[in-house]
Amino acid sequence: HEITLHINGRRVKLRFRDEKAAEILKEAAKKGLDEEELKKLAEELWR
């Protein structure tokens, strides 16, 4: 699955395995994680 989040006016595509991962990524984006941090988090969730 993929999700596209808008971060600092940019579109960031993240891959994720399940809905739980999608929710975690959305929450992290709301908390203000930047693009690099979100990509790292997405990679961690993928494993």
Rank of each mutant, 00 (worst) to 15 (best):
H1W: 14
H1E: 08
H1T: 08
H1P: 05
H1N: 14
H1Y: 15
H1R: 10
H1A: 11
E2K: 05
E2P: 02
E2G: 03
E2S: 09
I3G: 02
I3P: 01
I3Q: 02
I3F: 07
I3V: 07
I3M: 15
I3W: 02
T4C: 10
T4A: 05
T4Y: 10
T4V: 14
T4E: 14
T4Q: 06
T4P: 01
T4D: 07
T4R: 04
L5I: 13
L5C: 05
L5P: 00
L5G: 00
L5R: 01
L5V: 10
H6W: 13
H6C: 15
H6T: 15
H6D: 14
H6L: 15
H6R: 10
H6K: 08
I7R: 02
I7M: 06
I7L: 08
I7Q: 02
I7H: 03
I7V: 14
I7T: 05
I7S: 04
I7C: 04
I7K: 02
I7P: 03
N8V: 03
N8L: 05
N8H: 06
N8P: 02
N8Q: 08
N8T: 03
N8I: 02
N8E: 07
G9E: 03
G9N: 05
G9C: 06
G9W: 00
G9T: 02
G9M: 02
G9L: 01
R10D: 03
R10A: 06
R10N: 07
R11Q: 15
R11C: 08
R11V: 15
R11D: 14
R11E: 10
R11F: 15
R11P: 15
R11M: 15
R11T: 15
R11Y: 15
V12E: 00
V12F: 05
V12L: 12
V12R: 01
V12K: 01
K13W: 03
K13F: 05
K13Y: 06
K13D: 04
K13N: 08
K13C: 10
L14Y: 04
L14C: 03
L14W: 01
L14M: 05
L14G: 00
L14E: 00
L14N: 00
L14Q: 00
L14F: 08
R15N: 04
R15L: 06
R15A: 03
R15T: 04
F16A: 15
F16I: 15
F16S: 07
F16M: 05
F16D: 00
F16W: 05
R17M: 13
R17K: 10
R17N: 07
R17I: 09
R17D: 02
R17S: 05
D18G: 11
D18P: 01
D18C: 05
D18Q: 04
D18N: 12
D18I: 04
D18V: 04
D18S: 12
D18A: 04
E19P: 13
E19L: 11
E19N: 12
E19Y: 11
E19D: 11
E19I: 09
E19H: 14
K20N: 10
K20L: 10
K20G: 11
K20D: 08
K20Q: 11
K20C: 07
A21L: 03
A21W: 03
A21R: 02
A21S: 15
A21Y: 05
A21D: 15
A21P: 02
A21N: 07
A21I: 03
A22V: 10
A22N: 04
A22Y: 10
A22Q: 08
A22H: 07
A22I: 10
E23L: 12
E23T: 13
E23A: 12
E23I: 12
I24H: 06
I24W: 05
I24E: 07
I24Q: 09
I24D: 04
I24L: 12
I24T: 10
L25D: 00
L25T: 01
L25P: 00
L25C: 03
L25E: 00
K26W: 11
K26D: 04
K26P: 00
K26T: 11
E27F: 06
E27C: 10
E27H: 09
E27R: 10
E27L: 13
E27Y: 07
A28E: 06
A28I: 04
A28V: 04
A28F: 08
A28P: 00
A28Q: 07
A28D: 01
A29Y: 13
A29E: 04
A29K: 03
A29W: 15
K30H: 12
K30L: 13
K30V: 11
K30E: 12
K30F: 12
K30M: 13
K31E: 13
K31R: 14
K31N: 14
K31H: 14
K31F: 12
G32T: 04
G32E: 04
G32I: 05
G32D: 04
G32M: 07
G32P: 03
G32R: 04
L33Y: 14
L33S: 09
L33D: 05
L33N: 06
L33K: 08
L33W: 14
L33C: 07
L33H: 08
L33E: 06
D34Y: 06
D34N: 14
D34M: 10
D34K: 10
D34F: 07
D34A: 11
E35Y: 11
E35T: 09
E35K: 05
E35S: 07
E35F: 11
E35A: 10
E35W: 11
E36G: 11
E36Y: 13
E37W: 07
E37F: 11
E37C: 06
L38H: 00
L38Q: 01
L38E: 00
L38W: 03
L38N: 00
L38C: 04
L38P: 00
L38F: 03
L38V: 09
K40W: 11
K40F: 12
K40D: 10
K40Y: 10
K40G: 08
K40R: 13
K40Q: 14
L41H: 01
L41N: 00
L41I: 08
L41Y: 04
A42N: 04
A42Y: 04
A42C: 05
A42I: 05
A42P: 00
A42R: 01
E43T: 07
E43I: 08
E43V: 06
E43K: 07
E44K: 13
E44Q: 13
E44F: 14
E44L: 14
E44G: 06
E44Y: 15
E44N: 09
E44I: 12
E44P: 00
L45K: 01
L45Y: 03
L45W: 03
L45V: 03
L45R: 01
L45D: 01
L45H: 02
L45C: 02
L45S: 03
W46E: 03
W46D: 03
W46K: 01
W46C: 03
W46S: 02
W46Q: 02
W46Y: 06
R47K: 13
R47Y: 14
R47L: 14
R47A: 14
R47V: 15
R47W: 13
